[in-house]
Design a protein around this nucleic acid. Structure first.
Lengths: 226, 226
DNA sequence: TCGCGTAATATTGTCAACAATTTAGTAAAA
DNA sequence: TTTTACTAAATTGTTGACAATATTACGCGA
């Protein structure tokens, strides 16, 4: 039997964040304390602390006496986040170019494998998450914790934005081997090429956005339960 | 009589952060819940939530069953933070150059006044805080909330680092009118000059660091009471 | 049917008591 | 004196009950 380790507020955060990254928790979804208590089998106290952390990352909104809801970034916020992300990805790319070693290249290649596999398996949520996580792994290669953690945050928020405004019918980006080409450029220490691929990649992501609102309700148990 | 508005966890965060920015809360200082309850006149619940937020910003460390202490960044963390800050200041400078308007220039000039006044008044803690806040105000001029908020964080953490490793005997930086010259360059849309001033400014800040540990204990009531 | 006010319900916020853990203090033995 | 074991105190972690607030449901009159 699996020993049930006592969950912390951070664990709960991560679980919820993952679902956001997988775009399985839609923006605007109301998160009630009671429901999450059941899902995670913990007390309200812990849930409330997790909410506090998530709200600090702008992954949920927390309004006094109104509770928590998955964040639903406005178009202008969306723009700011993509702008920030473009700048950060570029800055980190430069750092990564200088510092990437065998280990980080290997980690990136391994990640590409997993992306590929998820695509083959038709596991779309996993693939979406891995696509985002690629940029997180890439950021780690720059070996600057504050910066790569900030990028993490922007990647999470990007997921939220894509879930909200992403044009699902459009051919999904990242499938065109852009991630692979980025790793190649990194390995070859070809900063200019890497920058260009990244710029195109970011632009194509942002091009997916269509700013007309949609609204969805969801069942927390089925999403967070697993 | 002044109506005592009910404090939130965020208010308490801010109060503590301010003291960090003023370098009045030394790195390593233990923060007990009970003591802060008295200082702020709130329940432990709120203090614990404030701790959670502060720890997420790496302003305090929070260890299970051991409680909170003002963060005490290691030399390598310090280096990462200054590196990140240098990159972010540069990136934001470019954005600010493009977007700064009358209002932001005015805000910066007003801030310079306050710095000057604090210096004249001999109010060193206030001056230290305002020196840091200058960069926060400058960041705001870039009009990208995620990025400028990230810079805020780095500025706070820089204060911690300077308090820890700063060479107090050395002639303090920022007094040489570097902030003024930055605003001038910004107003003249002279990016190259601005970049150069900023680079020198950051370098001179980092040059103040001397990595030999010191250890201090402090009285929370007298520091946080006001 | 619609608007409005009111009561019932659900949800969030707060607090205080209790449990678990760490830290400080004390005394005995080497 | 130093070390160790043990006890007492202080500190942090957790829980559940209750208060405050918001949301919903209902009934009434127009």
């Amino acid at each position: 039997m699996s020993k049930t380790i006592k969950l912390t507020e951070v664990d709960i955060c991560d679980r919820i964040r993952d679902k956001v990254l997988e775009q399985r928790l839609a923006p605007g979804t109301k998160l009630t304390e009671e429901a999450l208590c059941e899902v995670f089998g913990v007390s309200r106290n812990l849930i409330r602390r997790a909410f506090l952390l998530l709200s600090k990352d702008n992954i949920i909104t927390l309004e006094k006496n109104k509770g928590a809801a998955v964040a639903s970034p406005s178009p202008s916020e969306a723009h700011e986040i993509f702008e920030a992300r473009t700048i950060m990805e570029n800055a980190l790319l430069k750092q990564a170019m200088e510092r990437a070693n065998k280990a980080s290249i290997k980690a990136l290649r391994a990640h590409l494998e997993r992306e590929q596999q998820a695509l083959l398996d038709g596991d779309t949520p996993l693939w979406i998450r891995l696509s985002g996580e690629f940029h997180i792994v890439l950021g780690r290669a720059a070996q600057n914790a504050p910066m790569s953690e900030f990028l993490d945050l922007l990647v999470f928020r990007s997921s939220l934005i894509l879930a909200l405004y992403g044009n699902q019918s459009a051919p999904t980006s990242c499938k065109g081997g852009e991630h692979e080409r980025l790793v190649d450029a990194l390995e070859n220490k070809d900063l200019e090429t890497a920058r260009q691929i990244m710029a195109e990649h970011m632009a194509s992501l942002e091009a997916l956005l269509k700013f007309d609102t949609k609204d969805t309700r969801q069942d927390l148990h089925s999403i967070l339960g697993g």
